[in-house]
Computed example of a mutant assay.
Amino acid sequence: MTNILHITASIRGDESVSRSLGTKLVEGLADKQDATVVTRDLAKNDLPFIDAERHAANLAPYAERSDAQHGLAKIADELIDELEAADTIVFSVPVYNFTVPATLKAWADLVARAGRTFQYTANGPEGLLTGKEVYITAASGGTGMGSEIDFMSPWLKFFLGFLGMKDVELVAADGIMGEGGEEKIAEAHEEVEKLAA
């Protein structure tokens, strides 16, 4: 039995292109791998932004945390547990103002924990979340993936690599608000079907 973690970030619910692509991919992979699926919907806006007290709680060794720190670190612990348990991770991410939604950045700030998801070495930081299959299903209204105004996909790929997830497959329906948008969405769905086959 394998575990798939589906992380979604679009505020558009069932109308979200990135989410529909990711859901199709997750369903196909789950059938193929006989996998369990956990979904983390960041659009619910239930993740806190990091502040000094939460940051200190996240860094404190588990056995040395105060009761208050355990409470502050609980959500980050849960998010990291989800990552560690996953064999496959699918990120469904829209481009908002050329980059990731703020909720995804909040998630990243919570899961980047020295000693748990990465470690410092004599040769620099080393990611600890290795050996995972990672996909990004992305959608944008006008930003071309890989273009000079795309700050979403290079940042997300870099961050995942920082945590040890270096083999990342991107499927994008980009520039869909322009001419040929429906065709671009259809092409992305065809690519997802191939990946899930």
Rank of each mutant, 00 (worst) to 15 (best):
D34H: 15
A68C: 10
D14C: 01
I75P: 01
E169T: 14
D67M: 11
V134T: 11
A85L: 08
W107Y: 13
L110I: 04
F151E: 01
K24L: 11
K105G: 04
E169Q: 13
K132T: 06
E179P: 12
A43K: 03
F118R: 06
T99I: 10
R19I: 10
A56K: 12
H189Y: 11
L42Q: 04
V192P: 07
E182R: 13
L170P: 12
L104K: 00
F158I: 09
N97H: 09
D150E: 01
T99Y: 10
Q33D: 13
F98K: 11
Q119C: 02
I149V: 14
I136A: 05
E190A: 15
D14K: 15
I75Q: 12
K44E: 15
A112L: 08
F118S: 03
I75G: 02
A172K: 07
V111W: 03
M145S: 14
E169S: 11
L163I: 08
N58R: 15
G13A: 07
V95S: 07
A186P: 10
K157S: 09
E179K: 13
E182K: 15
A76K: 07
L47A: 03
A63K: 09
L21P: 08
G164S: 08
L42H: 05
N3A: 12
D46M: 05
L83E: 06
I4T: 10
A196N: 10
G141I: 01
A85G: 06
H6N: 04
P125D: 02
A122V: 11
A60V: 04
D77P: 03
Q119W: 02
A43L: 05
A108Y: 00
S92V: 01
E126N: 11
F98D: 08
G181V: 06
I11G: 01
H6P: 03
G127W: 01
A139I: 02
N97P: 08
K74G: 00
G180C: 13
S140E: 03
G164C: 07
S140Y: 04
L156Q: 08
T103N: 14
A186C: 04
M1C: 04
Y135Q: 06
W107D: 05
Q119S: 13
A43I: 02
V17K: 01
V93I: 14
E182D: 15
A68T: 15
N123H: 14
E187C: 01
H55F: 14
A57Q: 09
G175I: 06
V26G: 02
K166N: 15
G13E: 01
S10Q: 04
G178F: 07
A186N: 12
L170H: 11
N58V: 12
A73P: 11
Y62V: 13
I7V: 14
L47G: 05
S18L: 01
F158T: 14
I50P: 04
F159P: 01
V134C: 00
G142N: 03
F159Q: 02
K32T: 14
H189M: 14
M1F: 03
P94R: 09
K32R: 15
I4V: 10
D174Q: 04
E82I: 07
T2F: 13
E126L: 14
D174M: 05
D150G: 05
V171G: 09
I149W: 11
A86Q: 06
T117F: 08
E53P: 07
H6C: 03
M177G: 02
N58E: 12
N45H: 15
G141L: 00
E133M: 06
G146S: 12
